[in-house]
């Protein structure tokens, strides 16, 4: 039998994606379905694997009795709500500054990506456990303050400066990939747009708001989603740690599954909401929709 080019193409298409589909079935769909089922069940015999149906009991327990889940969840959501916008602004700012640099850009980009390379869970935990945020604050401001004859602690304590600088260390760990996205996005904006605006007498400030931001809006959406996923699923996230602890060390398998499903639901709703709101403001130039 001779296949037409179109049939041949679809056949090879399936062959190309087949390893991933196999993985999808074994490593994603099956575990997800089983996790969902397990969250409605209770294991009566772990070795014989006997289970009984308990309905929504675990979920009721999570939201009413669990003294860890709700506070940690609110904490995580608060962190996302604060950190993601900060990461967005910070990485966009750095990307803008970097594209303004001619020579030396490669070096600076390498430095700004460094946190991604070395930012393993262990390292982050190490650095946070010795309080690097405060160390940075002290070492930057101390010479300055001593010049003015004041103590750092007394001046900075409780001010926004302290808040920002201690937050900054958390932010730089998560900005590396975002900066790369923004640089790539900035480089893809045609320079002719800026030239045309300049001829018409636009100031850099105006062309940033009227050209850079709209042209960059698809990238902003992408970076937001990436940053959110990053924040919500990194290993040191307290929620992730809690679920892993319940499941792996506590051996409460069905409860861990229910926790996992509940958390996933929250993550899903959150990201869907943000995408929904943000895509109203996204501007696509050209034919893409």
């Amino acid at each position: 039998m001779k296949l037409t080019l179109k049939q041949q193409q679809s056949l090879w298409g399936y062959i190309f994606v087949s390893p991933w589909v196999l993985g999808l079935a074994l490593l994603f769909a099956w575990p997800l379905g089983r996790s969902l089922m397990l969250s409605f069940q209770r294991v009566t015999d772990l070795f014989q694997w006997q289970t009984e149906w308990v309905g929504l009991d675990h979920y009721r327990q999570i939201f009413t009795e669990d003294i860890v889940f709700t506070p940690v969840l609110l904490d995580t959501l608060e962190n996302v709500a604060i950190d993601v916008p900060l990461i967005l602004v910070f990485s966009l700012l750095l990307a803008l500054l970097l594209t303004g640099v001619g020579r030396g850009q490669t070096f600076l980009r390498a430095v700004f990506f460094l946190p991604v390379v070395i930012g393993s869970a262990g390292v982050i935990q190490h650095m946070l456990s010795v309080g690097v945020g405060d160390q940075l604050l002290m070492s930057t401001l101390e010479p300055l303050m001593q010049g003015m004859g004041a103590e750092v602690d007394s001046v900075v304590e409780g001010t926004p400066i302290q808040w920002i600088v201690t937050r900054l260390t958390a932010i730089i760990w998560f900005s590396g990939v975002e900066i790369l996205f923004f640089i790539a996005g900035l480089n893809s904006i045609p320079t002719s747009l800026y030239e045309a605006a300049r001829v018409d007498g636009a100031s850099p400030w105006e062309s940033f708001w009227k050209i850079t931001l709209p042209m960059l809006s698809p990238v902003i959406l992408l970076v937001t989603i990436y940053a959110m996923i990053d924040q919500l699923t990194f290993p040191e996230n307290p929620m992730i740690k809690y679920i892993m602890q319940v499941g792996v060390r506590g051996q409460q398998l069905e409860y861990a599954s229910a926790l996992g499903m509940a958390y996933f639901f929250v993550v899903f709703v959150q990201i869907a909401l943000v995408v929904r709101i943000m895509s109203k403001f996204v501007f696509y130039a050209g034919e893409k929709s």
């Binding site: 994603f28 575990p31 997800l32 089983r34 397990l38 996923i229 699923t233 792996v248 599954s257």
Partner: peptide, 24 residues
């Protein structure tokens, strides 16, 4: 359709799948 599923898989955190994966 498969590509939409791919996008969906990205936002599922590992702990959600942890227990069945461990049993598997």
């Amino acid at each position: 359709f498969l590509f939409w599923i791919l996008l969906f898989t990205i936002i599922v955190p590992l702990p959600t799948l942890a227990v069945p994966l461990y049993l598997f």
